[in-house]
Design a protein around this nucleic acid. Structure first.
Length: 156
DNA sequence: CGCATTTGACCCGCGC
DNA sequence: GCGCGGGTCAAATGCG
């Protein structure tokens, strides 16, 4: 269908759904570098941002970390609300937002923001494996391509 | 009883 | 300056 470059990975998931992973662009601080204004308030800038586009009927994907939901807001162009999660570990400011596409109810966009400062609590069956694979691949890809897109799908 | 979720209010940046 | 869209807070509630 799409004319994107796609790499196929086999991904074992408990469900019968296949995963379609899309790498978002790494957004860093634009022109503003938080010079003055409120000092000691929000020093945290967006460092890493991974955008996962998952095709599944469940929005909650267990990646091994414990998340605490802290908000939910509806976005303008989508009929489904967006959920905001945060890592429960103290000091770990990793955020995560989950949004379902209105066009395709099955498509769930998961956005990770930041890096964890602690190891994974639970042993994820395959998600952390795919995550690892995904990260290493996209890192090398992002250097050459500005818009790396990957598709992961599970064969039945 | 401790922790996660819920949900409306609040807040902030931006465009008009 | 105000309204809007998006992000976060926090009190109440729920649940194991």
């Amino acid at each position: 269908m799409e004319n994107h470059q796609m790499s196929s990975y086999d991904f074992k998931v408990s469900n019968n759904s296949f995963l379609e992973v899309k790498k978002g662009d790494i957004l860093r601080t634009p022109n503003k570098e938080s010079s003055s204004k409120k000092s000691g308030k929000k020093e945290i800038k967006k460092q890493h941002r991974y955008v996962f586009q998952t095709r599944s009927h469940v929005d909650i994907l267990d990646d091994g970390y414990r998340w605490r939901k802290y908000g939910e807001k509806a976005v303008k162009n989508n009929k489904f609300p967006r959920s905001y999660y945060r890592c429960s570990y103290r000091g770990c400011n990793v955020k995560k937002q989950i949004q379902r596409q209105s066009m395709d109810e099955q498509v769930v966009v998961t956005t990770y923001e930041g890096v964890h400062i602690h190891p994974v609590e639970k042993s994820t069956e395959s998600f952390d494996q795919i995550l690892r694979n995904f990260q290493s691949t996209t890192m090398s890809m992002s250097m050459s391509m500005s818009n790396p897109i990957m598709y992961l799908q599970q064969p039945n």
